[in-house]
């Protein structure tokens, strides 16, 4: 592993992952109130009706594909009797469908965000930056998938990118594997690491509040009033003057 490889595929990824994890913990503790989807449906709903489900279901499908391609080792699928050609055909087909859905949905959403006045004025700088990172990552992913397959010899990312990705989590990073991958994959992976680094500081945090608990919880939640004086929690640093014995 050369120094560049070490920097690009080991140091930067671990930094990004650390920021990703630490950032979420910090954001959750500091800013629960700001943790929201910040929906703009109230302003405009016709475009959103098509674009938002297209984008979200597309990217969820793409996520499923990534879990399959990155986390399941090639040896497992081969042991299960799935030949490389068949695997590749399936992944290419579904990947392309999901990718195109995501990109079209995202294009519509960005178009909507730019052209619908109220939506645009509700867009912060933070949002714009996030859109750049997200769009670059997604487009690079789709372009790589489609292009490498059109140019005759499709690259088998399950020999390079996938083991590299897993090795990061084994804490035995094999950066040299990434160096073997074509440039498209390298760019996609790098932009994804960077996206993870900004993730906790953008509206993307709403991904981690996907309300799956709704399926099992009782319909009507009951809660007791907070047993503190007054109904608001005291802000840190603003506790009332009291001796320790008087403190509730």
């Amino acid at each position: 592993m050369t120094g560049t490889e070490l920097l690009l595929w080991v140091i930067v990824p671990y930094l990004c992952l650390a920021v990703f994890a630490g950032g979420h913990v910090w954001r959750y503790r500091y800013d629960k109130f700001g943790w929201t989807t910040r929906s703009s449906q109230l302003y405009e709903r016709r475009l959103l009706r098509i674009a938002s489900p297209l984008f979200h279901f597309g990217i969820l499908a793409a996520l499923g594909g990534h879990v399959m391609g990155l986390l399941i080792p090639k040896s497992w699928t081969e042991a299960a009797g799935v030949p490389e050609v068949a695997y590749h055909a399936v992944s290419l087909t579904f990947g392309t469908i999901a990718g195109v859905g995501t990109v079209v949905g995202m294009a519509l959403l960005i178009y909507r965000r730019r052209t619908v006045g109220p939506v645009f004025s509700a867009t912060t700088r933070n949002d714009k930056m996030m859109y750049v990172f997200l769009a670059v990552t997604i487009v690079l992913g789709l372009v790589t998938t489609v292009l490498t397959n059109l140019t005759g010899h499709p690259h088998d990312y399950r020999e390079t990118v996938s083991p590299y990705f897993r090795s990061v989590f084994y804490l035995q990073p094999q950066g040299e594997l990434m160096a073997e991958a074509p440039l498209g994959f390298q760019l996609h992976v790098m932009s994804a690491w960077l996206l993870l680094a900004i993730w906790p500081f953008t509206r993307l945090v709403h991904v981690f509040s996907a309300p799956v608990g709704y399926l099992t919880r009782p319909y009507i939640p009951y809660r007791s009033r907070d047993d503190v004086a007054g109904s608001r929690k005291v802000k840190p640093g603003w506790e009332p003057v009291a001796t320790s014995s008087r403190r509730p």
């Binding site: 629960k32 929201t36 989807t37 709403h206 309300p211 709704y214 009507i220 939640p221 009951y222 009033r225």
Partner: peptide, 23 residues
């Protein structure tokens, strides 16, 4: 999100602003 709850003491229905995720 389960952010809207009914208070046990007086039945007032409230939205927990920290738990609401804007769905």
């Amino acid at each position: 999100s389960g952010a809207i709850y009914k208070r046990e003491e007086d039945g007032i229905v409230l939205v927990d602003q920290d738990r609401c995720k804007g769905w």
